[in-house]
Amino acid sequence: MAMNNIDMLNENELEALFEAARDTAPMPSQALWDRVHAGAEAALPTPHSFARTQPVRVGLLAGLIAAIGGWPSLAGLATATLAGVWIGFSNPEALTDSSVALLLPGLSQTETYELEDFDPGLNGFSAMLEEG
């Protein structure tokens, strides 16, 4: 055993003090536990949220276009509209042309036809219309 220097603790004596300090380490009070837990709760990061997208303001026209299926369907609608206008403005022609002759091969181009020619079930319908 090392000789004691009366003016100084020896290494073993000093180590015994450190050991005592380790063995008697202070334990947190309940209040400290609570405060630390509260801090952890308050600072708890939330999972990274996705970037919020601002709602896009949609105008009335854009809304209507979207409602019918977008620009492609609008092109189809425009085509149909133009076709309707063209049909409306065109002079009606007698169905004695070659196209009708194609439908009813038995008629010549100058012959007239009756509804019964297209549908035999309507036999007499034209006469009834004429009589009123």
Binding site: E41, L44, P45
Partner: peptide
């Protein structure tokens, strides 16, 4: 894990580290 929102990780760290910090 706590940084990713794990509450239980905070509990484990608190239990483990607070006494050392206090000492």
């Amino acid at each position: 894990a706590y940084g990713n929102g794990d509450r239980e990780a905070a509990f484990a760290l608190t239990t483990r580290l607070t006494p050392r910090v206090l000492g």
